[in-house]
């Protein structure tokens, strides 16, 4: 039985470790597409190496001891109540390991969350509602128009409740696909209209809850052109898994073209799924439904309503 335990525990350990080391790309963190992403990945790697060593050492010892110290009819077990010195050494070592890992990673967090966006960064407002994401650009005036809860109504095309009487709202752009310029820092404002949602783009190494009653400011800089998928990562109701949207990181020229004529630009450059990761299965690679790609100049739709 000791030998069986040794074999099974070791086998489990080595198979798991093998997959952690020789992972196929689809079983790992997707390729990074933001500037601060590599730092997160290297912190991940350090933690993973440290924990991997402890994991292998502990499991190997467990299997080994089970086999080596099995009851073979030998005289007696070793009578010992422990060893204070060993205990102390082990405690200090683990304390250094865990606290050290923790301190190593803190500056990345500080950089991502303590500092505000640099001046002149591009503003985008991300709003979650059951079960759809809306992205708003302030337009040339750099100001978001006022929103009113009583005007929120997706059926009229004004899901965000933008007040048409506010002059700042005239040039606001609302889109259901997020288009971002490459290598520009983004000043992101996160909002939720009904329940908690979470804006998660794995390639960006970015995740943040959007919370009703809170305005959350975040910043990051995408640095790789491509199409990615936004997943809602906080349970928000029956359609939670459907609450996905596309994000396109595009060149500066494309971005300007998008801002000029969002609807037209998106029709010409539809979001195409996470091609960058080679995950697309050919049979399912259909062009996106136009309805989901709907983008509009806000004041236009308002004008129709009036």
């Amino acid at each position: 039985m000791g030998l069986a335990l040794l074999l099974v525990v070791w086998l489990i350990t080595f198979v798991s470790t093998y997959f952690f080391i020789a992972h196929p790309s689809w079983m790992w963190l997707p390729p990074v597409a933001t500037t601060y992403g590599p730092q997160i990945d290297s912190q991940f790697t350090y933690t993973y190496i440290a924990m991997g060593i402890v994991f292998v050492a502990a499991q190997v010892a467990l299997g080994l001891f089970a086999w080596k110290y099995r009851d073979r009819g030998h005289a007696a077990a070793y009578y010992s109540h422990g060893n204070i010195r060993l205990e102390a050494v082990w405690t200090i070592l683990t304390a250094i390991l865990f606290v050290g890992l923790n301190l190593m990673g803190q500056h990345i967090w500080a950089q991502a969350r303590f500092q505000g966006p640099s001046p002149g960064s591009e503003q985008v407002e991300i709003t979650g509602m059951q079960f759809q994401w809306y992205f708003r650009y302030p337009g040339s005036d750099g100001k978001y128009g006022r929103t009113l809860a009583k005007l929120e109504d997706p059926s009229t095309g004004n899901a965000l409740g933008i007040d048409p009487d506010d002059p700042a709202a005239k040039d606001d752009i609302v889109s259901s696909t997020l288009v971002l310029p490459v290598n520009r820092e983004l000043d992101v404002t996160l909002k939720a209209l009904d329940v908690i949602h979470d804006f998660f783009v794995p390639e960006f190494r970015f995740k943040q809850d959007a919370v009703p009653g809170l305005l959350i400011h975040m910043h990051f800089t995408p640095n790789r052109i491509g199409d990615y998928e936004i997943d809602c990562a906080e349970l928000c109701g029956s359609g939670h898994y459907k609450m996905r949207a596309g994000v396109k990181v595009v060149s500066e020229a494309d971005y300007q073209a998008f801002l000029k004529a969002p609807q037209q630009w998106l029709t010409e450059h539809p979001w195409n799924g996470p091609m960058s990761r080679g995950l697309m299965q050919e049979s399912e690679a259909k062009p996106p439904a136009p309805a989901l790609q709907l983008a509009m100049r806000h004041h236009q739709s308002q004008a129709e309503n009036h």
Partner: peptide, 8 residues
């Protein structure tokens, strides 16, 4: 404080 949608 609570976030007021009118006055932002």
């Amino acid at each position: 404080g609570t976030y007021d949608t009118v006055t932002h």
